[in-house]
């Protein structure tokens, strides 16, 4: 299936979890937050939340600003 991670298309196996999507970008788990289709997925449920075809995953962290 195809999902979008931070704006880029990714082909991933069925059953891919949020945790696995995060691991494609970073090993980091603290200081990072994830939204799937504009809903926050809390860190404790990353490993048990499966993605669906066409999901939009946003993986954010803090940067210099403000």
């Amino acid at each position: 299936m195809e999902v979008t991670i931070n704006g880029a298309a990714h082909e991933v196996p069925d059953g891919t979890t949020v945790a696995q999507a995060v691991q494609r970008l970073t090993e980091q788990t603290t200081g990072v937050a994830v939204a799937v289709n504009d809903e926050v997925v809390t860190r404790g449920t990353w490993a048990t939340t499966a993605l669906a075809d066409r999901d939009r995953i946003e993986i954010l962290t803090a940067v210099q600003g403000g």
């Binding site: 970008l25 970073t26 993986i59 962290t61 803090a62």
Partner: peptide
């Protein structure tokens, strides 16, 4: 701080 898409290439935070 601001919140932005995680950049895998970024060094230091």
């Amino acid at each position: 701080v601001a919140m932005r898409r995680l950049d895998p290439a970024a060094r230091g935070s």
